[in-house]
Structures are given as structure tokens and as C-alpha cells.
């Protein structure tokens, strides 16, 4: 095929997804950022002109605690999810295919039940009259007066529960392709099992791990249903605030400003990480050690 022809056909093949990404992804993101600089009118619509007022409103004294909580809950739940998903994926990838499929199915089965129903199930489970609480009281681990529900710990537990499959699937997909003879090779060269795991298995499946981190961290930062249903007034997250601004206050610019903040909170550390990594590689290349 002639090269210009191939170029054109590549464009034609790529066009639908490109258009899709621009229309449904790039433009909305730009809009979210732009909306943050629009004034609000009295009826919940957008006013004329541009303003910095919304950005300045973000200095609301109740926000730092909420933002901080969103951050640490997001990071803790992501860390736990990934930390649990790695050994599970490692074992899954080494299993024979029959058991592997059964367990993968078990991991996916909860998705067949509606998300809301599953969260309500947690409410029943953790409820003051629920089995779990009664069991803990019976063992003597907690007092009868302790509430398991409506606090940030309940939010964390349910978030971890919800996101673990999202962490397992990308990590498993990488681990499945992992050539386990590399572990043999590492041990053969004198590495301990742990060294082989850390220096060979983890780096080789790192793409899957980073995908899992992104896939869990982003919805965890944006979560609002879970804190809404199993959290109390003191366990609100940024997601709750955004929802409130949209549905209750009808203040789209404020919601946009908060959303933009969340997006930057994910995006900037990612960029920073890439840049540091790039610097490190450059330094190594200079020292001739790659």
C-alpha cells in the first residue's frame, strides 16, 4: 500500500475514537475548568462575564477538613486495594485455568448486583441490630454502644470492598502475561523469593499496578454515594460537596471549581512523578548505568 493511502486509512480508522474522546471527554473537561470562572445568577443558571469569586469561595473554612479526608481515604483505600490485589493476582496467575476461572467469576459476580443494593447490604450488615455487630459484641471486641455505621471507617471499608475488583482486574491482566520462568531465573541467579518478587515481578507488572492505582484512586476521590449512604455528617467527602452544590445549591461554577480541584489533585502528582522518573533516567544514562 502507498504510504499516503496508509496514512489516510489510519486516520479513518482512528477518527471515530478521536471524535469520541474530543466530544465526550476533552470538551467537557475544558468546560468544567471554564465554568469555574463563571458567575452564578439568582436562578441557578450561569451569569454573564467572568469572575474569580468562585475560586476565592473555595477558601470556605469547612473545606480543608473535607479535602484532607477525601485525600487520605482515597489514598488509604487505593493502597489497601492494590496491596491486596497484587498477591491475589500473583496466585491467580499461577493457578491452573479451571480454578482461575472460578475465582475470577467470584470476583466479578458482585457486579451483577446493583451497586446501590450492595451498599444497602453493607448498611444491613453493619447496622446496630446487624449480625456482624452482634457477633463482635458477643466476642467482646466492642461495646454495645459502639456504632459501626455512619462514620468514616464504615466509608473506608465499603470503599475498599467496592474498589478491590477494579484493582484486581488490571493487575491480574498483567500478571497473567507475566512469564513465571523469570522468577525461576531470578532464583537461579541467587535471588531470594522476596527479592525476585520485588525486583522482577513487581517492575514487570508495574503497568498493571499503575492502571489499578488510577482506576481506584480516581473514583475514590470522586466518591459520594458511599459516604452519603454509610457515612455520617462528619465523614463527608469532596464528592458529597460537589453533589450538594449541583443538586441542592444549584451552583454549577462552585461544583466545577471543586471538580477541577480534584482533577488537578490527581493529574499534577502524576505529571510530577513522570518528570522525576524522566530526570532519574537521564541521570542514570549520564552515569552509564542503565
Amino acid at each position: 500500500m502507498k504510504s499516503w493511502l496508509r496514512n489516510i486509512s489510519n486516520w479513518i480508522i482512528g477518527a471515530p475514537s478521536f471524535v469520541w474522546l474530543v466530544v465526550f471527554y476533552a470538551i467537557p473537561i475544558v468546560l468544567v475548568f471554564l465554568l469555574a470562572f463563571k458567575p452564578v445568577d439568582a436562578y441557578g443558571g450561569l451569569g454573564e462575564g467572568w469572575t474569580l469569586k468562585t475560586i476565592l469561595d473555595l477558601r470556605n473554612p469547612s473545606y480543608p477538613a473535607i479535602i484532607w479526608r477525601t485525600f487520605w481515604q482515597g489514598i488509604v483505600s487505593t493502597t489497601v486495594c492494590v496491596a491486596v490485589a497484587i498477591p491475589i493476582s500473583y496466585q491467580l496467575a499461577r493457578m491452573n485455568s479451571r480454578w482461575k476461572n472460578v475465582i475470577l467469576l467470584l470476583i466479578i459476580v458482585p457486579f451483577w448486583t446493583n451497586f446501590l443494593v450492595r451498599i444497602y447490604a453493607w448498611r444491613v450488615f453493619l447496622h446496630a441490630d446487624g449480625i456482624f455487630k452482634k457477633l463482635l459484641v458477643a466476642i467482646g471486641l466492642i461495646e454495645d454502644s459502639t456504632t459501626l455505621l455512619y462514620n468514616q471507617w464504615a466509608v473506608l471499608v465499603v470503599m475498599i470492598y467496592t474498589y478491590i475488583p477494579f484493582a484486581i482486574l488490571p493487575i491480574y491482566a498483567s500478571a497473567e502475561k507475566f512469564d513465571f520462568s523469570l522468577i525461576d531465573a531470578a532464583k537461579d541467579l541467587g535471588a531470594s523469593s522476596f527479592y525476585a518478587f520485588r525486583r522482577v515481578f513487581l517492575p514487570v507488572i508495574s503497568k498493571g499496578i499503575w492502571t489499578a492505582v488510577m482506576v481506584v484512586l480516581i473514583p475514590a476521590f470522586g466518591a459520594y454515594l458511599i459516604p452519603d449512604l454509610v457515612g455520617g455528617p462528619s465523614s463527608e467527602l469532596v464528592g458529597d460537596k460537589i453533589a450538594q452544590r449541583v443538586f441542592i445549591d444549584r451552583n454549577l461554577p462552585h461544583a466545577s471549581a471543586l471538580s477541577a480541584l480534584l482533577m488537578l489533585a490527581v493529574f499534577l502528582p502524576m505529571l510530577l512523578g513522570k518528570w522525576l522518573n524522566h530526570l532519574r533516567r537521564r541521570r542514570q544514562a549520564r552515569e552509564g548505568r542503565i
Binding site: 512469564d179 520462568s181 523469570l182 525461576d184 531465573a185 531470578a186 537461579d188 541467579l189 541467587g190 535471588a191 531470594s192 527479592y195 525476585a196 525486583r199 522482577v200 517492575p203 514487570v204 508495574s206 548505568r289 542503565i290
Partner: peptide, 25 residues
Amino acid sequence: TVFQNYALFPHLSVWENIAFGLKAT
């Protein structure tokens, strides 16, 4: 062992592959 598929570490350079046994020990 020299494995049939060589089992070289794909994420490491030639240098790091050769140095692996020294580092691991």
C-alpha cells in the same frame, strides 16, 4: 541456568540483566 527462552528480565537493560546475579547476592 541458561533457559530455553533465555528468561531475560524485560524491564532491565543488558547491563542490569548481567549484574542481576551480583546484586541479588
